[in-house]
Each structure stands twice: as structure tokens, then as C-alpha cells.
């Protein structure tokens, strides 16, 4: 499974899952455009890690909620690499506000970034992928496209919308050789505050005891890490996955089953 020479654009790649995805894509040989909104320093760290994985990349700053900025970002990637084979829609905001705590502005921002931001990026890359007669779009959904969060109502609404954006895009863009799929991560350790209390046990620290305790929430005994998600992106972006579109792969250590 090689992505050698393929060009990937990863949104929200400064931290967390986006960084993990960027590194795994680089390890498979892809060139990675690293998008961030206001995390220049983090994006540089991601770029450094892409270089350490023996690949090349560039940093593209843009607010995905702004169609004009997204268009400019896609042009910038095109100027550097001449093509875009893989779009990973990942940038999201999660204010961890309860149903009753949202106001008009916070509601609009979450929908604008998480849902319309994904649409903006799809609309911007489709002409490029159409011309190439192929493309791979992978959208980060969540277990919260199915199961409520109980701590961030509009985040879950945005993920419910993404589920349908992926399915609609899949049937519409299939004619151009573009596949569109989604990943539904459960809890992933991303080094920032989350509203959901959960046992954090990195894979290298899993013990029999932590596995037993963690297994009450995660049958596999640990929380997810960004590379868990990156591996799935690489598969969905590969030639081997050409018959998969409109699909969802849940990666949650089995937590949704409990």
C-alpha cells in the first residue's frame, strides 16, 4: 500500500488527529499540505515530522469556514505540487457546550467550521480531482454522528450532517472517479482538553490492570491515538480501496458497543 508521489491536503493538521494523519500519509510517501487556522507553530512541528518521515510538505493557512480562503489554499497547493489526490477533511471546533449553553454565535461557528468547512474544501478540490479523473476524499466524522455526546450538542449535529455530506458526495462524485468516505473515531488522545472524562492510557503504558479498568469503557483497553486514524486514512486513500465509497469505518476500540 504505497501513496508515493500522491499529494494530500489535510485540514486541521497542526495538532491531534490531523497531525497523526499527516505523518502516516508521509510515511506512505505522500506529499502533505498541512492546513491550520491559527496554530502556525504546531503546523511547523507537523511539517518537521513529515520531513522526518522522509517526505515533503508545505503549510497552508486558511479558515476552512471561509470559501475564498479555502479556494486560495487549494490554489497554493496546486502551484506547489500541480495536483491534489487526497483531501482529508479534519478541521473542527468543539467548544464543549451543552444543549442549553449554546448561543446563536457559537452555534453558527460550529456549523460553519465543522460542516460547511468540509463542504468548502470538497467544492474547492472537486474541479482539480475531476480534471485528474480521480481523487480520494476522507472526512473525519465521529462516533457522535450516531451516539449523542451529552456534552456538545451542536458538535454532534455537525457530525450528523457530515454523515450525509459524505453519502451525497459519494454518489454525486463517483462519476468523476472520486471516492468519499468517513472515519468515525471514538475518544482519541489529542493533547487538548475534552469534555468527556475517560481513562487515558497510551498504548505503551497498557498494563493488565489498566486494560481491565479501561475495558469497562474501551474493550481494547486503551484510548485511541492519532496514528490509529492515520492508518485508516492511508488505506482509504490507496488504490486498494478503489471500490469503497460512501462508507464509514468506526475506530473506537469497541467503545460504542458498551
Amino acid at each position: 500500500m504505497s501513496l508515493r508521489g500522491k499529494v494530500a491536503l489535510v485540514t486541521g493538521a497542526g495538532t491531534g488527529i490531523g497531525r497523526g494523519v499527516s505523518i502516516e500519509l508521509a510515511r506512505q510517501g505522500a506529499l502533505v499540505a498541512i492546513n491550520h487556522f491559527d496554530r502556525a507553530e504546531d503546523a511547523h512541528t507537523t511539517l518537521k515530522m513529515v520531513h522526518e518521515a522522509n517526505s515533503d510538505g508545505l503549510i497552508v493557512q486558511a479558515d476552512v469556514a471561509e470559501p475564498d480562503q479555502v479556494k486560495a489554499m487549494v490554489e497554493q497547493v496546486g502551484e506547489r505540487y500541480g495536483r491534489i489526490d487526497i483531501l482529508v477533511n479534519n478541521a473542527a471546533t468543539q467548544p464543549n457546550l451543552g444543549l442549553m449553553d449554546y448561543d446563536d454565535a457559537s452555534y453558527d461557528r460550529v456549523i460553519s467550521v465543522n460542516l460547511l468547512g468540509y463542504l468548502n474544501c470538497i467544492q474547492a478540490v472537486v474541479p482539480v480531482m475531476k480534471a485528474q479523473k480521480q481523487g480520494r476524499i476522507v472526512c473525519m466524522s465521529s462516533v457522535h454522528a450516531k451516539r449523542p455526546t451529552d456534552f456538545d450538542a451542536v458538535y454532534a449535529m455537525s457530525k450528523g450532517g457530515i454523515k450525509m455530506l459524505v453519502r451525497e458526495s459519494a454518489i454525486e462524485l463517483a462519476q468523476y472517479g472520486i471516492t468519499v468516505n468517513m472515519i468515525e473515531p471514538g475518544a482519541v488522545q489529542v493533547g487538548r482538553k475534552s469534555g468527556n472524562p475517560r481513562p487515558i492510557v497510551p498504548p505503551d503504558q497498557v498494563t493488565a490492570e489498566s486494560r481491565r479498568r479501561g475495558a469497562r469503557k474501551f474493550p481494547l483497553g486503551r484510548i485511541g491515538i492519532p496514528s490509529d486514524i492515520g492508518h485508516i486514512v492511508c488505506f482509504l486513500a490507496s488504490d486498494e480501496a478503489e471500490f469503497i465509497t460512501g462508507a464509514a469505518i468506526r475506530a473506537d476500540g469497541g467503545s460504542m458497543l458498551l
Binding site: L115, H144, A145, A153, A156, M157, M164, L165, R167, E168
Partner: peptide, 23 residues
């Protein structure tokens, strides 16, 4: 189920499903 014709309607319906569950 995607519509193939009115995707914004489907997006809204997907969001509505999750609103229902959260609420």
C-alpha cells in the same frame, strides 16, 4: 439515505437526527 438532488436537505436531516438524540 442520500437524495442525489437536494444534498443540503439531507445534511440538515442528518443534523436533526443528532439533535433529537442529544435533546
Amino acid at each position: 439515505k442520500p437524495t442525489g438532488s437536494a444534498f443540503s436537505y439531507a445534511l440538515a436531516q442528518g443534523a436533526l437526527q443528532m439533535l433529537c438524540k442529544e435533546a
